[in-house]
Simulated scan of single mutants.
Amino acid sequence: MVKSWYMSSIYDDERNELHLNPPSFVTIEELNAKTGVLCWKFNPKDVDENKEFIELKRSRGYTYEDSVEISPEKLPGYHDKIKMFFAEHIHTDEEIRFIEAGSGYFDVRDLDDKWIRILVEAGDLLVLPAGIYHRFTCDKNDYIKARRLFIGEPVWTPYNRPADDMEERKKYIDRMKCQKA
């Protein structure tokens, strides 16, 4: 299952694990409570026949998907794209990723504005809620293959921080405060 922890803000390479000293791990339940992030685990070899995966896609309205390979060999302009993915931003829609192969990190902010690093590996399905500040980077292996799922047609627009005045960010904060109460 997905592993997550509060991360250090001091680093020379964002592809490292970046644990605090001492490490401060976050359970899946805490991750959901603190950020609204949802996680599942599926076997990537038979995910398309998995009844739970099929029902999850249906019940959440995921009707469009594609696949992307992120590595220096597979993604033109890899270093510029990774830099762009690592800029802190929000989206007006959920960001849904199923990791087919490889690994990487999604970093998300909790309501106290602290970073939580989420390690994603083959088989992990991650749903980042609309309006959450987040970013992505590969790990030291510099390779990840992810299936991107969408509700309807894909929306790719990132809104870099600060985006606190955006309606979706305000809705996210309100949802999380209600969930916390």
Rank of each mutant, 00 (worst) to 15 (best):
D110Q: 03
K83D: 14
L149K: 02
H79Q: 13
K45F: 12
V37C: 09
P22S: 12
P44Y: 06
A33G: 05
S24F: 08
A130N: 04
E94Q: 09
I99G: 01
E69M: 00
K145G: 09
K51L: 12
I82E: 04
T27F: 08
T92Q: 09
L149I: 11
A146W: 03
L125A: 04
F106S: 05
P129M: 10
F150T: 05
N43G: 00
E95I: 03
A101G: 03
D113Y: 11
R109L: 14
D113M: 07
D139P: 06
G152A: 12
D46P: 08
N32P: 02
P22W: 10
T63L: 00
I144C: 07
V68Q: 09
N50C: 06
C138T: 15
I144Y: 01
R58E: 15
P76K: 09
R15D: 07
E121P: 01
D107F: 06
V37S: 01
E94I: 09
E29K: 12
K74I: 00
P72Y: 01
D107C: 08
K83M: 07
R147C: 13
R135I: 05
T27A: 04
V37I: 12
S71F: 00
D107W: 05
V37N: 01
N141T: 15
D110A: 04
V68S: 09
S24G: 06
A122V: 04
G123D: 07
I132Y: 04
N16M: 12
I99K: 02
I99R: 00
L125M: 11
V127S: 02
K45H: 10
E121V: 11
W40I: 02
T137I: 15
V26W: 01
T27H: 06
L149T: 05
S103N: 12
A33C: 08
G36A: 05
H19D: 12
G61W: 09
V26Y: 01
Y143P: 09
G77L: 08
G36E: 02
K57T: 12
E95F: 08
C138Y: 00
R97E: 07
E29W: 03
E100M: 15
P44C: 10
W115Y: 13
F106A: 00
N43H: 01
I132G: 03
E121L: 07
L18M: 11
